[in-house]
Design a protein around this nucleic acid. Structure first.
Length: 886
RNA sequence: GGGCAGUUGGCUCAGCUUGGUUAGAGCAUCUGCCUUACACGCAGAGGGUCGCUGGUUCGAAUCCAGCACUGCCCACCA
């Protein structure tokens, strides 16, 4: 019988077969007509920049666990999958690919380039979907979405118009973060920060009509070409007399007014600051306050423009070098100091960004932020772990306007139209036939696209058909939980809450679960460029999808970053194999018997181990429920893992082996079959969300289970309170301890594992003796006992090893086997342990304050500990004495 | 500069909310076993006094304060 089931679990076939059947059955599809309560998750759409990595594997495993759990609890589960066009990110990777072929996007032109990007998207899209399927993700593939789908694009358009009409979108000529490589603006949130070793250059500006100099310090000397003033602090006595006068900009010989502004820090540098309104955010504001000219010296690609005089055409850093050189030659460079500087870089290509003056579109964020703040304060929205709500709130409470226009090609075209005749700007759903101002028909659409987050912030509702009032929207929105990493709390999570409140009047999800970032064994973030990334498919091929899933969950502590190496997946593979083999044992013993999936027998008919495992099972199910409800995946998995491996396999299955043996009656066998079969099926139900494939495969090894039957249809197991039996669990602990003690003595005395030994248990505890007698057969089998004697007045046989346990003593006669020295060492070690323990308890009990102030029961407990320890010591001493008598 | 998180055996973590069992687990290590489900296994063992300092308390890994270190996030000081 056993031969029919392979000795080791073979994941690949099971994965292929079951995934296909699940999809065909339609169980992943959420029905809008269903009477069942909805439970919705929308996937954080992966970027089409690349295929998925282990971080995604973790993210999607967690979502799948939750959605499968809810589905089996008879919710109308909907997991909406999809991918994100990821504007700048995708454009950058495709461009980099082009460069390898020696081409630029400008050479190709917009249309041809976009075709390339679409082809890229199709390829990655397909591979991403395939990866999700291989992981076992139970997504509703019929509803797969892409951020540039027609429907979603329509939502983007409506949102732009809506905000524009509400005066929440405006156009402004401001300093934005400019990436000279990507040739686009970036929002504040799209920057990375990097600390670099740089210098502070002290430059001497000649005072007009004098031979004296005013020295200023700067980290970006080339920007002096755009200086339009020098500022000092109005309180600064050193410079008071200079305010209102002028200085001469070296090289370009431009006259700069010396102005006073509170912004200037008297302590820093020389106390005088060069002001470059077009290239520094602070200087921009000072420029506004003092009516200074904003002189732009840069082209959009980071080279200097004609305003830079002889430096025009040079790259910004080349210009810096030659400018500094010239300053030196002219004697205008006072000194150069080392200086640690923090620079902002483009989050997609790492180029240092420049503050750059340009006309862009912005969203006024403050009015949108309020409901998002309120959602947390009212408890309508919760973060797990909770402390992330602080991060979320901080950003919302200090929110700044959002620059949404991008000078890219890949993305949603901005619905802005220009009249070529009168330069009138129009915002419209489609291209206007004529200019609203001059009537001209020469109208063209603005070449800019929208920030990629301008479509993703609509994801939870645009994917269900908004702005149409669809049945999907009605049934599945708002969603229940969102799973993501902390990096995008600002970029995405907060903005989704804002958008949902504004456009649907609802908070898009009730729970946000923030999981850690997957790191390698050295704690390094996994990334392609570092070469430490692991491809989920590789892991699935090698260890199986279930192994990958459960390993990731077991390795991810709540709220912290998991450290993952390939070795981490062995734990999951081993576990899958353990379950497989436990099932092999149980199922192969059915031998024609058909276990029921609902067990509700008279508990008194059962054997004690049966009652015990049912109690442990009920408790475990209850715990898993609690932990999953609280988004504590790691603990939920651990509780199930321990129950299965330790309670079920190590203890229960070992205990029922005799009842399944050839000497047992059919009646006894059937009882063991019924309970082990029932517990096994409950375990499969419990584990199914975590490890869907192996559990489904095992379920189908059960008699009479049809191909079209699914574990999910059995539903989520109920924690049956009537099974819980705390007293029996306590009794079992006692028996387990006795068995362990016997095993320890045997092992330490080098009793060969195959050899059975007589065991005597001496105890004056009548209740304990009763329990031991009731479970005698288990002690005999698991302790490999030849003859077990339990009694009050037992004498220690000569030449026996002994052990002291809470309820008494254990003797194992070892005639001819006992090594006296070995036994002495063992006993003395034990004695030392007890003595040091006794000392501690004694000290406590000698403390008057303790006796006076500690609660009664604590004192009682200590006294009992004391008596027990003292008792043990007496016994150990006696045993040692006997030893020396030999 | 501000905020958040963390600091427990060789490694990764649990315990800390509600202070009181001889501080747990997995991996790794050591010993012995192919015991008729599983060597991707079984049994046993060794190993930590809980970052530091001080306080509260009869009693602190657990509460409070300060400090140190690590990581992350935010921030316009040239």
């Amino acid at each position: 019988m056993l031969k029919e089931i392979p000795k080791a679990y073979e994941p690949h076939k099971a994965e292929e077969v079951w995934y296909q059947r699940w999809v065909e059955s339609g169980m992943f599809h959420g029905s809008v007509d269903s009477e069942k309560r909805p439970y919705t998750i929308v996937i954080p759409p992966p970027n089409v920049t690349d295929v998925l990595h282990l971080g995604h594997a973790l993210n999607n495993t967690l979502q799948d666990i939750l959605i499968r759990w809810r589905r089996s609890m008879n919710y109308e589960a909907e997991w909406m999958p999809g991918v994100d066009h990821a504007g700048i990110a995708t454009q950058v990777v495709v461009e980099k690919n082009l460069i390898k072929e020696g081409k630029t996007r400008q050479q190709l032109g917009r249309d041809k380039f976009l075709k390339k990007v679409w082809a890229w998207k199709e390829d990655k899209f397909e591979r991403i979907i395939n990866q999700l399927r291989r992981m076992g993700c139970s997504c509703d593939w019929e509803r797969t979405r892409f951020t540039m789908d027609d429907g979603l694009s329509k939502a983007v358009l409506e949102v732009f118009i809506h905000l524009y009409e509400k005066d929440l979108i405006y156009r402004g000529n401001r300093l934005v973060n400019w990436c000279p490589r990507c040739l686009t603006s970036l929002s504040d949130d799209e920057l990375e920060r990097e600390d670099i070793d740089s210098h502070l250059w002290y430059i001497k500006y000649k005072l007009k009509g004098s031979d004296e100099y005013l020295t200023v310090a700067t980290t970006r000397p080339e920007t002096m070409l755009g200086d339009t003033a020098i500022a000092v602090n109005p309180k600064d006595k050193r410079f008071k007399k200079l305010v209102g006068k002028s200085a001469i900009l070296p090289i370009l010989d431009r006259e700069l007014p010396i102005i006073a502004d509170d912004y200037v820090d008297m302590e820093f540098g020389t106390g005088a600051v060069k002001i470059t309104p077009a290239h520094d955010v602070n200087d921009f504001e000072i420029g506004d306050r003092h009516g200074l000219e904003k002189l732009n010296i840069l082209n959009n690609d980071g080279t200097l423009n004609d305003n830079a005089g002889k430096f025009a055409g040079m790259d910004r850093y080349d210009a810096r070098r030659s400018l500094v050189e010239e300053l030196k030659q002219r004697g205008c460079l006072d000194k150069v100091e080392d200086y640690k500087l923090s620079v902002s870089t483009c989050y997609r290509c790492n180029t240092v960004v420049e503050p750059y003056l340009s006309v862009q579109w912005f969203v006024r964020m403050e009015p949108l932020a309020e409901p998002a703040i309120e959602a947390i304060k009212s408890g309508e929205l919760k973060f797990h772990p909770d402390h992330w709500s602080k991060t979320y709130l901080y950003w919302l409470e200090n929110i700044r306007d959002w620059c949404i226009s991008r000078q890219l090609w890949w993305g949603h075209r901005i619905p802005v139209y220009h009249c070529k005749d009168c330069a009138e700007i129009m915002v419209a759903r489609e291209i206007p036939k004529s200019c609203s101002k001059c009537g001209s028909s020469k109208i063209e659409q603005d070449p800019d696209v929208l920030d990629t987050w301008f479509s993703s912030w609509l994801w939870p509702f645009s994917t269900f058909g908004w702005p149409e009032k669809t049945p999907e929207l009605n049934k599945f929105f708002p969603t229940k939980s969102l799973f993501t990493a902390s990096e995008i709390i600002y970029l995405w999570v907060a903005r989704m809450v804002m958008a949902s409140s504004e456009f649907t009047g609802k908070i898009p999800f009730s729970h946000v679960y923030i999981h850690g970032t997957v790191r390698d064994a050295n704690g390094e973030k996994m990334s392609k460029s570092k070469g430490n990334g692991i491809d989920p498919i590789e892991i699935i091929d090698k260890y199986g999808a279930d192994a990958m899933r459960i390993s990731l969950v077991l390795a991810t502590p709540e709220g912290q970053d998991p450290y993952i190496s390939e070795k981490s997946f062995e734990q999951g593979r081993n576990f899958a194999n353990k379950i497989w083999n436990a099932s092999r044992l149980v199922i192969s013993n059915f031998d024609g018997f058909e276990p029921k999936y609902e067990l509700d027998p008279e508990l008194s008919d059962l054997d004690l181990p049966d009652i015990w495992i049912l109690s442990r099972l009920a408790k475990t199910i209850g715990q898993v429920n609690n932990y999953l409800s609280g988004f504590r995946f790691n603990t939920a998995a651990k509780v199930a893992y321990d129950f299965i491996w330790k309670d079920f396999c190590d203890w229960y299955l070992e205990m029922i082996k005799t009842r399944l043996g050839k000497d047992a009656s059919e009646e006894v066998k059937n009882q063991a079959r019924a309970v082990s079969g029932f517990v096994l099926i409950e375990i499969m139900r419990l584990l199914h969300p975590f490890m869907p494939f192996v559990t489904e495969e095992i379920y189908h090894l059960f008699p009479k289970v049809k191909e079209s039957d699914f574990l999910n249809d059995l539903g989520w197991p109920e924690p049956k309170i009537k099974f819980i039996n705390d007293k029996l669990e306590k009794d079992f602990e006692l028996v387990q301890n006795i068995i362990s003690a016997i095993r320890t003595i045997r092992s330490e005395m080098d009793v060969p594992p195959g050899k059975k030994a007589d065991v005597l248990i001496k105890t004056s505890d009548k209740k304990a003796a009763e329990i031991l007698k009731e479970l005698e057969i288990q002690i005999v089998n698991l302790g490999r006992v030849k003859e077990l004697t339990i009694g009050e007045d037992l004498k220690k046989p000569p030449l026996s090893a002994s052990g002291v346990v809470a309820i008494g003593e254990i003797y194992i006669p070892l005639e001819g086997l006992i090594d006296l020295e070995n036994e002495r060492i063992r006993l003395e070690k034990e004695l030392a342990k007890k003595k040091s323990f006794l000392k501690r308890v004694k000290k406590k009990l000698a403390n008057k304050d303790f006796l006076e102030r500690a609660p009664e029961d604590v004192i009682e407990a200590e006294k009992e500990k004391y008596d027990q320890a003292e008792n043990s010591i007496t016994k150990l001493n006696k045993n040692l004495e006997m030893l020396s008598g030999w």
